[in-house]
């Protein structure tokens, strides 16, 4: 299809899509690979409880890159962003409230 068709009434020129350049995809891919290396490297050091924090931080960064660029949410409308965010907010509720319950009951290692 021609990209610069002069405006004509009642002609649907199709979705106004943002076509992402393959170079950007390769850049995101490289970032994901570097972050994978970092997560393996970080796991080799003992940061105590912070090992989990670092691992989840890196994984969340990778997930954000995939969602924003590979899944095009960076260029999506507000409604899509809202749905994506709501999925993760509800996941947050699930884990946060469940864990706050378990943590506040003082279960220890050898319980049960």
């Amino acid at each position: 299809m021609a990209e610069h068709t002069p405006h004509a009434d009642a002609v649907d020129l199709g979705p106004h899509e943002h076509v992402v350049s393959p170079k950007l995809y390769v850049g995101i891919f490289a970032a994901l690979m570097v972050l994978t290396y970092l997560t393996v490297e970080a796991a080799g050091h003992d940061f105590g409880i912070f090992n989990t924090v670092v691992a989840l931080g890196i994984a969340s960064t990778k997930a954000l890159l995939v969602i924003a660029f590979f899944m095009h949410v960076r260029w999506a409308g507000k409604l899509v962003v809202l749905v994506v965010a709501s999925g993760f907010v509800w996941l947050g509720f699930l884990i946060l409230i469940t864990m706050s319950d378990y943590l506040s009951r003082g279960f220890s290692l050898v319980t049960g």
């Binding site: 999506a76 409604l79 899509v80 749905v83 994506v84 709501s86 999925g87 993760f88 509800w90 996941l91 699930l94 884990i95 469940t98 864990m99 378990y102 943590l103 279960f107 290692l109 319980t111 049960g112």
Partner: peptide, 29 residues
Amino acid sequence: TLGMWVFIAQEIMFFGGLFGTYAIYRYLY
């Protein structure tokens, strides 16, 4: 696109149950 994202939001909750279970047992054991 919106319909697919609603499905994926549901998938997040689907896997979320397992991740939540993991969080509990990882903490306990």
